[in-house]
Design a protein around this nucleic acid. Structure first.
Lengths: 127, 127
DNA sequence: CGGGATCCTGTGCGATACTG
DNA sequence: CAGTATCGCACAGGATCCCG
């Protein structure tokens, strides 16, 4: 919204109905990107295998795919060291760091997770 | 981070590596939920068909699925009016409204969308 | 070590048809 | 009107093998 309540968001003068935050969601919250960015933020620059071990349930192929996407979007920086054995390091870019307040808002909302749990229990326990 | 910069988030005393905001992402940013919540927030309580027309590209089946999920998670309230023809209305719950600051943070980040665009262009234009 | 190439499977979603 | 039921496919992602 532009000026009324000050809450939620500026409604872009969008064509018809499309929610204006959808593009951001597509970029930042596509599958696996959250744990990857989190790991890079939490533990700093690190190698491919390190990331792979931290996330643990991700396969190398998918990790590569997502890292490529994040690199293309400018959220992650890839550094290739032409050595033997080869070494590749990933780190969060400046743009990626700008997501910090957003992730903070996310983690603040997790205080509501138990409310979600109770809502689910209530929903499941009915005719 | 636990206390150094104060940015981003409190690391829940998680088992090992799992990023603490992943559960929130799963609940709030699963497919279609963003436009649905947006439409409900922006235009208030409304009927199924109204939602269907606003989102336009969603099919009734998927809209039903996602609304059920949002209802189960307590983010949306469904009201059934036993009339002929039947009438069903959906609205954002109190819990759903608590997402407002989060969505605000999202929309604020969209100022960086052009940086993403440029990063992509730069990435695509290389050997 | 850091992937690319290939094959295979689960399932999200669209399309269509039917009901209270 | 507000869904449910059924079929079918495309595609994300797992498993495996291989290479610089």
């Amino acid at each position: 919204m532009t000026e009324d309540t000050g809450k939620w968001a500026p409604r872009g003068g969008d064509p018809e109905n499309a929610c204006p935050i959808a593009p951001v969601v597509d970029i930042v919250f596509s599958r696996w990107t959250t744990p990857i960015l989190w790991a890079l933020h939490e533990y700093g620059r690190q190698r491919f295998v390190a990331l792979e071990r931290r996330i643990a349930t991700i396969t190398p192929k998918v990790l590569t795919q997502r890292l490529r996407q994040l690199e293309r979007d400018g959220l992650v920086v890839r550094t290739y060291h032409p050595e033997v054995p080869p070494r590749v390091e990933y780190e969060i870019s400046e743009l990626g760091r700008s997501l910090a307040p957003l992730f903070a808002a996310l983690s603040e909302w997790s205080v509501h997770l138990d409310e979600v749990e109770r809502a689910r229990a209530a929903y499941d326990a009915r005719p």
